[in-house]
């Protein structure tokens, strides 16, 4: 039972995480390969609060504070990285964010106070599956409403055509930075949830591999599709686990099946399962 609960929990955290990257990558079209870094900053910052500076308050209120700490820390690192990097485009932005993500991880690995390379232990168990899915639900509503507002339209227009978007009066830098910062912040919230459900953090949780996995979840669902992100996160959390049960060779080879599926998906449907659209069709799509 615990095992299933753990999978559900991780799936829920990945829903929030995937949505947060979808804002940057799917909505705004900015290709980021360092998202796990923001997730890590949020996780570690919130854990620093709960381990070293926790106030004598009920766990639920402390968890709220931890979430806010995770959000602010990750959003600030988003600004720090976004201001210099968002001038770059496409491949170059991807490379720069990859570099920053790795730098964040190396800093974490070299900070003894948060466990360094051994990992950060003794984090209180403040969050549970209800927290995880409540936050995921808030994230879904936030993203859908954003998409249907003028603000969201401006962000999406940047993905479509930067020059035309600017020509429509959209301040590119402002909206890119907004997406990047809020996306990072929401990833930080997912980090706080991760820290306070797992009670243990290790730098290897937040390396480049994980940035790729989150990205794959976004792509699988469809860039710009909120419901797609939810589906992508759930499918890619559960499928590898199911393969584990398949036994024998398949279980041993499941980690190679995952990238093969990714490649086949790209070959067959590069825009992801839903493309930019939503499950439920036009009702959710463009009506304001």
């Amino acid at each position: 039972m615990d095992y299933y609960l753990q999978i559900l929990l991780i799936a829920g955290i990945f829903i929030t995480l995937t949505l947060s990257l979808n804002l940057i990558n799917g909505f705004c079209g900015q290709f980021s390969l360092g998202h796990a870094g923001f997730w890590g900053v949020g996780a570690y910052a919130s854990a620093v609060y709960s381990v070293y500076y926790a106030l004598p308050l009920p766990a639920a209120i402390n968890m709220m504070i931890a979430i806010i700490v995770g959000f602010i820390a990750a959003a600030l690192s988003g600004i720090l990285i976004g201001v210099p990097c968002l001038r770059l485009k496409g491949d170059y932005l991807a490379i720069a964010t990859l570099g920053f993500g790795e730098i964040l991880r190396i800093i974490i690995t070299n900070t003894e106070k948060i466990g360094g390379p051994r990992g950060f232990i003794n984090i209180p168990h403040w969050a549970n599956i209800i927290w995880v899915y409540a936050i995921a639900a808030v994230a879904v509503v936030f993203m859908i409403n954003l998409k249907r507002s003028s603000f969201g339209r401006a962000i999406i227009s940047i993905r479509e055509d930067e020059i035309a978007s600017e020509n429509m009066g959209v301040n590119l830098f402002k909206y890119k930075l907004f997406s990047f910062t809020i996306g990072a912040g929401i990833a930080g919230i997912a980090g706080a949830l991760f820290a306070h459900t797992q009670q243990f953090l290790h730098p290897s949780n937040f390396n480049f591999m994980w940035s790729v996995i989150i990205l794959v979840m976004v792509i699988l669902g469809g860039q710009g599709s909120v419901t797609g992100s939810v589906v992508g996160a759930i499918v890619l959390t559960i499928v590898p686990e199911l393969l584990r049960f398949a036994g024998g060779n398949i279980a041993a080879w499941r980690m190679t099946i995952f990238p093969v599926l990714l490649i086949l998906l790209m070959l067959a449907r590069p825009q992801g399962i839903f493309g930019p659209h939503e499950l439920g069709g036009s009702k959710l799509r463009s009506k304001a």
Binding site: S150, R153, I156, S157, E160, I163, S165, M168, V170, S286
Partner: peptide, 22 residues
């Protein structure tokens, strides 16, 4: 623009709505 620069994957009306942005 000389080489049309529409938001190709958005609907016609969303293209116009976006222009009201400011």
């Amino acid at each position: 623009f000389q080489n049309i620069r529409l938001f190709k994957d958005l609907t016609v009306i969303d293209n116009i709505k976006l222009a009201k942005h400011t």
